[in-house]
Structure formats: C-alpha cells, structure tokens
Design a protein around this nucleic acid. Structure first.
Lengths: 219, 219
DNA sequence: CCTTGTGAAGTAATTCACAGCC
DNA sequence: GGCTGTGAATTACTTCACAAGG
C-alpha cells in the first residue's frame, strides 16, 4: 500500500474554492474557454497570486503563457469539493429561517438538497414547507438512515441548539451548519460551521462606529 | 490637536467580540458577577490566552487574581461594538430569505432593527412582511434619509446584487451585508460582509469528501 | 496563591518576484 | 512575450510562558 500523504490544504484556501467554482460557472455560461489567474482573481475579488497558489495545492491545472482551461478547472474543483454527487441535508427547526432555507431552491444546483425538515414543536409537525412535510425531531435517527444524510442544518433557538447537535452526532452526522447563536460543543471529528447574522451585523457596526469616531476627531 | 492613534485591532479579534458579548450576556443572565479568561474562553469555544489578548487591545478591564467584572466588561464591549445605540437596517429583496430576516426578531435585542424592506418587483410592493410593508426599491434614497440607515442587507438574486449595491452606495450606505452569491464591487471605504450558505455547505462537503476518501484508503 | 497582561516564539496566510515553460 | 507555479519574504494571527499585581 502506498504511503501517499494527501497534501494539507490551508483552511483559507478551502474557503475560497467555492468562490472560484462560482466564478468559473459564470465564465462557462458566458462561453469563455480560457481564463488567466488575474481574470479569475478579478471575478473572485482577490489577487492573482492567491488564485495561483490556491490552485497549485491541488495540481498543475494551468498552462504557462495561456491560463486555465475553464471547463477542465471547473471539473477539478467540483471533484475536490465533492460536487460530483448530491448531498442530502436535514434542517432542524421549522421556524422562519428553517422554512425559508427549505423553500429556497438555490442550493440544489450547487449539489445540496434539503430532504427533510423537523421540529420539536408538535404543533408544527405535519405542516407543509414547500414540498416537504415537517416531521418530529425524534425521528432524526430514522431520517438520517433513510436518506443517508451527512449534513445537518440547525435553525432552532440558541437554547435548543446544543441538544439538537447532540442528537445529530448521535445519529451519525459529522457535519453541522449552525444558524443558532450558540457555541456548540461536539466531539472530535465533527465539524461545525457557524452562520451568525447578528455577528456579521455587529462587525459592520463596529466599523461604522469607528468611522463615526474618527470623523468626529478630524473636526 | 492630539495625534492619538487609535490602536489597530486585528480583524480576527473584531470578529470574536460579538461572541464574547453573547457569552457575557449569558453569564449576566445567570447572575454571575465575575469570570476568568478561562471561563469566558470555555463558553466562547476558544482558549484563555486569546481572550486575554483580544480584550487587551481595548484596555485593561480585568483584575489580576480575580478575573473580569461581567457587567463592566459587557458594557465596554457593547460600547466598542457600537451597541449603545440602535442600528436601523434596510433589506432589499423581499423573497423567502429577506422576508424571513425581516420577520425574525432576533436582531432587535442585539441592537439592530429592520425598518424597511424593499423590492424591484412591483407585484411584491405593498405586501405585508411582519409589521412592514414592502416598498419599491426606487425609494431607497428617501428611505435611507428618512431612517438614517447605515446598514443595507442584500437578499436579492446574484444577478441583481451589484445593481442594488450601487444604489445603496449612491444613497450613502457604507456597510453592506450581502446574502447574494456574488462578489460585489464597491468603492474604497464601503465595507461588504458576505453570508453565503452554499459556500458553508461546500466547505462541509469538502471535508466530508476527504473523510470518505481517507477511510476508503485505510481499507 | 491566582489570574491578568504582554513580550517573545511559533504558525498560518498572503504577497513578492522570478525561473521555467508554452 | 505572457502566464503559471513556487520558493522566499512578509505580514497576520495564535500560543507560550512568565513577570507583575491583586
């Protein structure tokens, strides 16, 4: 057996791959066959060196003097991101946000499909959300098995989030997208990504506040 | 005039301040008066040294041998984040996500209020979203003035996002929270933060994919 | 004692700059 | 001549480790 060690990819690079994918999709739609690192960088809002270094972690996909072959590079990035197959997801929390995400079709073409939406609240169970019927959270283990789910999306309140995370882990889910404003405690090997809109707004507010202060100082 | 230079705060530190704020709010609700950097770190999911260094950029708020005074530190962080006053926001794009965000009250207690929701689509104008009535996007300049808005939230399609960003900038808004999967081009001095759920899912998928590959390798 | 605040050391990410290849 | 791929240099961030202070 070969002792080939998969290269370590910086987190920052991984986070940019989906952006490159999106830009390449745009280029492909426009019928562009080739793109230089600078052109890609322009679309992605970064600089050329970063694009080249990021891509170099995965292989040498470009041609010197020419640039990158758009369809080929897109295919390679898709493969790296696991976009060659579909990822079934479950949403737990059928409130405003959970329902909106379930109804939103925008992830399907990116390889993700919401196959179930669940809630603890019995009064929500049975309700229709788009094409899905809300099921009770207790059915999580069966749902995960039934659809072979590997990604769980938490859209509950902060108070309920840790419980739900525990249930997801218990059911075998190792990737969690957390919209609840709570720090989740999960075992080693389980990956949580947080999406916290309030935090993003607060970061904007911090800079607004500083701007206001420095402008006041000048006067 | 003093040439006092406001200390440069690392971006990574700024991004953690809202998390500390949230943890301090939890501690305060529990009636806790004091907290050590280690205790705060535990709640925030980081380590003690990071908490201490982060806080040290703003001043010396702790007491050696004791820890931090919860209400006092909370107050200081709130001040730094500009949470001492309210931030009126406008949402542009009255689709599923925009409507869900407008209805969601969870930002109000964090200092943000959605004061208007707008859309280009005439058929959506006049509809009720929670307590707000959808207004036409063309009214943006007046709305920004009327409510003294400094934060714009884009929940349109990717295709429309750049146009909306331009209009926001034109109307004087310098902080944008962008939910559209698009790289926005804005003038210097305007800050954009992107929230892209598809990207977060793709990052999770990348790791799932790698896990699957390494597990296959072991066999 | 205990815990902060912080220089110094260590790591990670970005950018430079240019050799190598088309 | 133009553009990639990548070591080397730089910058940003984290963690260590300990002096100083309650």
């Amino acid at each position: 057996m070969s002792t080939f060690r998969r290269r370590v990819i910086p987190d920052a690079t991984i986070a940019r791959l989906p952006i490159y994918q999106r830009c390449l999709m745009e280029l492909e739609e426009d019928g562009r066959k080739k793109a230089s690192s600078e052109q890609l960088a322009e679309l992605a809002g970064v600089n050329g060196a970063k694009v080249r270094k990021d891509l170099s972690y995965f292989g040498t996909y470009g041609t010197r003097g020419v640039g990158y072959d758009v369809p080929h590079l897109l295919h390679e990035i898709r493969r790296e991101l696991g976009m060659t197959h579909d990822w079934p997801c479950v949403i737990i929390g059928a409130g405003n946000l959970g329902s909106a995400l379930a109804k939103f079709g925008g992830f399907v073409d990116r390889g993700f499909s919401v196959v179930a939406i669940m809630d603890v609240d019995q009064s929500k169970v049975g309700h229709q959300v788009g094409s899905l019927t809300v099921r009770h959270e207790d059915e999580l283990p069966e749902v995960v098995k039934e659809f072979d789910i590997s990604i769980g999306i938490i859209t509950t309140t902060a108070a309920a989030a840790q419980d739900v995370a525990d249930q997801l882990v218990e059911a075998g889910v190792r990737s969690i997208l957390n919209f609840a404003p709570a720090t989740l405690d999960v075992p080693y090997g389980v990956l949580v990504r947080d999406v916290d809109v309030a935090i993003e707004l607060q970061i904007l507010a911090f800079h607004e506040e500083r701007r206001a202060l420095s402008e006041a100082e000048i006067v």
